[in-house]
């Protein structure tokens, strides 16, 4: 299975993402620059965290208009798995691939710590290696992770089981309904504020993120082999 890690000016979790796939998961992975127009050679697209375009205007706004995002939209329509982490989540909402928006943290502070998450839906291509309701520990590091959407959208998210991860402890950023990660209606685009790629080795605090990447591979093998 071949993964693409998108790189924008200001991405800074791209190397962590690459390491997680290549060294911990053991799958093929390549960096792809933001002006690329073709992602057809990849089976999954990863949009890493960071501060694309310096967070100017709004987090993820400029990146959402880049060339590569047109290719990401095509890949999403083809049903390929697309994962956006942190700034990647912000880019996916700005691009309209996921509903809602990420606002400034309620306490106005940048928060960097490991938090407990609850797996709200293990029936997705990103979470099939977790138990339903499992508590996992994944680091967050963001200033704008306060998920917001209107009531109608929230109702839809709940009806379709699109809320995949919630904060299990104290809500760190004020996000609606403790939301930490959501999928699109089809279930192949996941956006989440916590960083699974930073939790792939017990030596570094937690390996709970690895199952997310293993889930993607499992789903892909079942449908392609």
């Amino acid at each position: 299975m071949k993964f693409a890690v998108l790189v924008f000016p200001g991405s800074n979790c791209d190397v962590d993402m690459y390491h997680a796939i290549k060294d911990e998961l053991g799958e093929e992975v390549e960096f792809v620059w933001h002006d690329a127009t073709d992602l057809s050679g990849f089976d999954a697209i990863l949009i890493p965290g960071g501060f694309s375009y310096g967070d100017y205007l709004r987090c993820g706004a400029m990146a959402s208009q880049s060339n590569v995002m047109k290719a990401v939209k095509e890949a999403a329509e083809e049903g390929k798995p697309i994962l956006g982490v942190c700034n990647g989540f912000q880019i996916l909402t700005e691009a309209g691939l996921l509903p809602g928006a990420l606002l400034r943290n309620k306490n106005l502070k940048f928060i960097c710590r490991t938090v407990p998450l609850k797996v709200e839906n293990n029936q997705t291509m990103f979470t099939n290696q977790y138990d339903q309701g499992q508590i996992i520990h994944i680091p967050i590091a963001h200033g704008e992770g306060n998920y917001y959407c209107d009531e109608e959208t929230l109702k839809k998210l709940k009806e379709n089981n699109q809320i995949v991860f919630t904060y299990a402890g104290e809500n760190p950023n004020g996000s609606l309904e403790n939301i930490a990660g959501i999928v699109n209606e089809r279930g192949n685009v996941l956006g989440m504020m916590p960083h699974p790629e930073r939790a792939v080795d017990a030596l570094l605090g937690s390996a709970d993120g690895l199952a997310l990447f293993k889930s993607i591979v499992k789903q892909w093998r079942e449908t392609h082999v």
């Binding site: 706004a61 400029m62 917001y148």
Partner: peptide, 9 residues
């Protein structure tokens, strides 16, 4: 609509 404002918020 496309860039300068995010009409969701």
């Amino acid at each position: 609509e496309k860039l300068l404002a995010n009409t969701v918020i």
